[in-house]
Design a protein around this nucleic acid. Structure first.
Length: 644
RNA sequence: GCCGGCGUAGCUCAGGGGUAGAGCAACUGAUUCGUAAUCAGUAGGUCGGGGGUUCGAUUCCCCCCGCCGGCUCCA
């Protein structure tokens, strides 16, 4: 007999060797119908597998359901096996690579004779349905490693053999469903019929093990859910994301464009987009001045030597635009702002009394990004960083980081971002600077995060070679996260450029630098903002805040006066006196996502009023222009409140 | 850069070896209207660029550019 303890604390005994179906059956917490797998002493196992007593202690058994991330993963992983089975059944000479569950679905990589077409996808999907309908059991089996090598070699599955050869254990586990066998850690659903809702979502080329040096395989993406409803919800979310796509909204709202004639990855900011950018920049500058930063400007090109000194030429050459010859000297377009800021620092001798020094610049940089990676505003070749470099004594490091972190979150909150994923990246294998400094810097970053009670995850070894960093990903209203902010400690550049200050004893000392960007780049940030707000910018950022709509041409003169009055208050107002019906004008203003539509007809004119209609469709009762000005001014501010 | 898909009017898209079509937008005219589309008419395209096959190419083939979905990379 084996004693089993359930999550609710209940204990029960079973004969050794019974399946977990039996174990969960009849137990309240078990709800054996809903469980797709079990966790046995914390280890994921198949329901089909049997109960064993290995420790003598009661065995902890938890059901894993589709409501949990782990349960969904089991389901998706099983779906990927079904897909592999379908592909093997449909096409000859296909070899299997890997097929894991991922963020919101699964994929499987295949080595095929020809790439898959969209029609293939339909065929594979149909075959999968057959397999699911046939309800083949997933049978797991543990076999000696050499048997596995033999088995998969015999099947011509070279990739599987490669994987097995890298495994350390003496045994490996394989799963079979019908005539299909795959190397797999499991667990799986009890049988293929348990897959309730799935869809193949796309194909793509993907390198074996993610390296360009390896063969390109055919990847098929799909997703699976516990119910048709959940799948539909997921597909709806994708639709919603499409509706918010900044490339689509950018065109519809006339915010920006890119032109083949200008070049890929280069952004043209139209008047509407430029207005939003100007407002962001004005806000940014104002807050930086308040935050005791010095705002500076630096050139767009410089002698290449600057980048050789900084190390960027060696490290990032593949991402830099080629040098241009000017009177026998090589210049490059700047990919980063830091060397300039350092030159400004170095233009005069600095004392410890001067530190910290904070130089901030909206610096436009150019990086050569390979054509395949460009993506709307989110990945471009020319972009403006909201950059700053802080020079400080080692003892100031912790306070500075705290300050930067607080400042960052404040700025992000001002744009309506309320949730963040924060990552602390620590020392990589290849690094510069002393271990002591690294330890200090990592401790300072950690201390700053913890002093503000922020949750974060550590990415060990993911720091840049010159120092550890904090990356902040913002979460938008539909839960997607975007990498924007980064705070990096740098021991390298002060060294390379021989940056110094005089300490309190008059001795030469080396400052530490922090690089930081809050929004990252204005282009990317703008792209995120568009999607975050679905193009409906809050009043303070709207290119047009209010539009006055006349009912008939009798009201034109009055309407013009209203617009003039609003403009005099600094409100971005427009006038629509076109000879169109009111409904038509409202529709257009609505599609332009203008926050306030002010209807002006004979009634309003008679009482010197306006009838506001909000972007959402809500209408306010008519009020005087002055009262409306009061309302809009109240709304005309960032969301983050005051920074204290 | 690599794999796959795509590129036709300002936008969304149809068509297809015999030199192109719709809706919306634009323009003109009529209409003077109360909270998401008034009606009529007009104009608009070297069918992404270059080369080839062909009597003839926007359509078929090749190269290039750009876009989309991925791989990889990053602000």
């Amino acid at each position: 007999m084996v004693n089993v303890v359930f999550p609710d604390g209940e204990e029960k005994s079973f004969n050794e060797g019974v399946s977990f179906f039996e174990v969960l059956k009849g137990h309240a917490a078990g709800s054996s119908k809903k469980a797709v797998a079990v966790k046995v002493d914390g280890q994921m196992r198949d329901l089909r597998s049997s109960l064993k007593d290995s420790t003598g202690r009661p065995v902890k058994v938890e059901p894993v359901t589709l409501d949990s991330k782990e349960g969904l993963e089991v389901c998706r992983h099983s779906a990927s096996h079904v897909m592999a089975q379908a592909v093997k059944a449909l096409y000859s000479n296909v070899r299997l690579a890997i097929g894991p569950a991922i963020e919101d679905g699964f994929y499987y990589d295949f080595d095929t004779e020809r790439p898959f077409t969209p029609e293939d996808l339909d065929k594979i999907e149909a075959k999968m349905r057959e397999i699911i309908k046939a309800d083949f059991p997933f049978i797991g089996e543990v076999i000696p490693r050499k048997d596995a090598v033999e088995l998969f070699s015999g099947m011509g599955e070279g990739y599987k053999v490669e994987i097995i050869n890298e495994l350390k254990d003496d045994t490996v586990s394989v799963y079979r469903q019908a005539d299909f066998t795959d190397l797999c850690r499991g667990p799986h659903l009890p049988s293929t019929g348990w897959i309730k809702a799935f869809k193949l979502t796309g194909t793509a080329g993907a390198y074996w093990r993610g390296s360009e040096k390896n063969k390109m395989l055919q990847r098929v993406y799909g997703t699976a859910f516990g119910s048709k409803e959940a799948l539909k919800e997921h597909l709806d979310r994708i639709e919603e994301a499409k509706r918010r796509d900044h490339r689509k909204l950018g065109r519809e709202l006339d915010l920006f464009s890119m032109s083949e004639s200008v070049g890929a990855g280069l952004v043209l900011w139209h008047p509407n987009g430029a207005t939003v950018r100007r407002l962001i920049e004005d806000f940014w500058k104002g807050e930086h001045v308040k935050g005791e930063y010095d705002i500076i400007y630096t050139p767009h090109i410089a002698l290449i030597d600057l980048w050789k000194t900084s190390g960027h030429w060696d490290f990032y050459r593949d991402n830099l635009f080629s040098p241009m010859d000017v009177e026998g000297q090589d210049y490059i377009v700047k990919p980063m702002n830091c060397p300039f800021h350092i030159q400004i620092y170095k233009s005069r001798l600095k004392s410890y009394r001067d530190l910290p020094i904070r130089y901030a610049e909206l610096g436009t940089v150019y990086r050569y990004e390979r054509s395949g990676v460009l993506h709307g505003l989110l990945r471009v070749r020319g972009f403006t960083q909201d950059d700053a470099h802080i020079f400080m004594t080692p003892s100031q490091l912790e306070d500075e980081i705290k300050g930067v972190l607080r400042f960052t979150l404040y700025i992000l909150k001002s744009f309506g971002f309320k949730e963040f994923d924060i990552y602390l990246s620590t020392r990589p294998e290849k690094y510069v600077g002393s271990l002591e400094n690294w330890a200090k810097a990592e401790a300072a970053l950690k201390g700053a995060l913890e002093s503000q009670g922020l949750e974060y995850s550590v990415d060990p070894g993911e720091g840049v070679f010159y120092g550890p960093k904090i990356d902040i990903k913002i979460k938008d209203v539909i839960g997607r996260s975007w990498q924007c902010s980064t705070i990096q400690v740098d021991f390298n550049l002060p060294e390379r450029f021989d940056v110094t200050y005089r300490d309190e004893h008059g001795a030469e000392a080396r400052p530490i630098m922090i690089h930081r960007a809050l929004m990252g780049s204005l282009e990317r940030f703008f792209g995120c903002l568009i999607e975050h707000y679905a193009g409906a910018f809050p009043v303070w950022l709207s290119p047009v805040q209010a539009i006055v709509l006349t009912v008939t041409q009798r009201n034109d003169a009055y309407a013009e006066g209203v617009v003039k009055r609003l403009k005099a208050e600094g409100i971005r107002a427009e006038l629509d006196i076109r000879n169109e019906k009111l409904g038509f004008k409202i529709r257009e203003a609505q599609l332009r996502k203008i926050p306030y539509q002010l209807v002006v007809g004979d009634n309003e004119e008679k009482d010197s009023r306006v009838a506001p209609r909000k972007r959402g469709g809500e209408t306010l009762s008519p009020l005087s222009v002055e009262d409306f000005i009061g309302i809009i001014k109240e709304e005309n501010r960032p969301e983050g409140g005051e920074f204290l």
